[in-house]
């Protein structure tokens, strides 16, 4: 594939045609508390800054997002080529709660080219929230590939994941949480990168499951990417991370034990928490589907998130239905057919 010339980002000459690159990481976990938080509690829980309110929406399900926090960074950038590139700027981070049950911490930033070619006073970076200026020569390809590579979590490299993780840890000690979650679950981390591609190309989504915890997502978006288009990307990634976490957690609930070998009460104990706390949270595209419908379509076709979810949900319902059958069987004769009159 020949790369268009403007894909190369070098110095300040072609800053106007710069390829847009946005990178971030989302960490998703079950809120460590026995009951889901109410709408008011969500707002209290996410009040991370006194000067800005928490945004709460009720439809289609309760969703609350904290104000953005900025973290100043000055460190090496993870470049696939290994070239030494430095990044200075700020990373935006926030926490969000879905259904008062699932907590997500998300951190992201957009690359820009440094106009001056050197590090400036902090006041310069503080008025450009969420932008990280690059000092050194590299390409957009190199940056996105480097960011998604496994080596990118080495100490000393710019890692929005650690910023997100700190937010999660900070939230864990909150007084509203009783620390008694209804089920065991694993945190997941989705590392994502968006790169602009020439107009006319199809938008594409590359979602990879690296291991039980890590996932990567590469989005290639064609055409013009203005501030509004850039702003619509993090919500999409967060929503995708949420649904991937739901799917991962439900798979574990179902596959953990051979379901066929469990007795009735055990099945109910095992599946009950998932039914009460997770099933109703599945609403893919509820928040970012309007801006980026083609991306959701891509994910639904391959790997087919909703298809797999439906199969699992059906399996859970079948298991629970199956467990209720023997109860009828062992019930006394008289109570088995309550509507029909005794024959004798």
């Amino acid at each position: 594939m020949t790369r268009p010339k403007r894909d190369k980002v070098s110095g300040n000459k072609d800053a106007g045609h710069e390829t847009v690159v946005v990178c971030g990481e989302v960490r998703t976990a079950l809120l460590q508390t026995s009951l889901p938080l109410s709408q008011d509690q969500c707002a209290r829980f996410l009040a991370l800054r006194p000067d800005e309110p928490v945004r709460v929406s009720e439809r289609p399900n309760v969703y609350a997002v904290s104000p953005d926090l900025l973290t100043g960074v000055d460190c090496r950038l993870p470049a696939a080529s290994g070239s030494r590139v430095r990044g200075v700027g700020t990373v935006r981070a926030h926490a969000a709660l879905t259904g008062g049950r699932v907590i997500q911490a998300s951190a992201h930033f957009q690359y820009t080219t440094s106009v001056s070619g050197q590090r400036l006073p902090w006041s310069h970076y503080l008025v450009r929230p969420g932008l990280v200026e690059r000092l050194g020569r590299t390409t957009a390809d190199d940056l996105t590939a480097g960011f998604l590579a496994p080596r990118a979590t080495e100490p000393g490299l710019l890692d929005p994941g650690s910023i997100a993780s700190r937010l999660l840890d900070r939230a864990r000690g909150h007084e509203l949480l009783d620390g008694q979650p209804p089920l065991k679950s694993r945190r997941t981390r989705l590392r994502w990168a968006v790169r602009q591609v020439p107009p006319g190309a199809e938008p594409s989504v590359h979602f990879t499951i690296v291991d039980t915890e890590r996932r990567t997502l590469l989005l290639l978006l064609p055409g013009l990417m203005d501030a509004k288009a850039v702003a619509s990307v993090p919500p999409f990634c967060e929503e995708l991370a949420l649904h991937d976490w739901l799917l991962t957690t439900l798979i574990r609930v179902v596959e953990r034990r051979a379901l066929g070998s469990l007795s009735g009460p055990e099945v109910a104990n095992r599946l009950g928490p998932a039914v009460s706390h997770l099933l109703h949270l599945w609403l893919p595209g509820a928040r970012s589907g309007r801006e980026l419908p083609e991306l959701w379509n891509g994910v639904e076709q391959q790997p087919g998130f909703t298809r797999q979810w439906q199969t699992l949900v059906q399996r859970i319902r079948d298991q629970l239905a199956l467990q209720s059958l023997p109860l009828h069987d062992s019930a006394p004769e008289s109570s088995r057919a309550p509507t029909s009159a005794p024959r004798r």
Binding site: A29, L30, Q32, D169, R172, P181, K184, S185, R186, R187
Partner: peptide, 12 residues
């Protein structure tokens, strides 16, 4: 502390 908290979240 963080490690214990995270593993407690995940393991029985």
């Amino acid at each position: 502390t963080k490690l214990f908290a995270q593993l407690e979240e995940e393991f029985d």
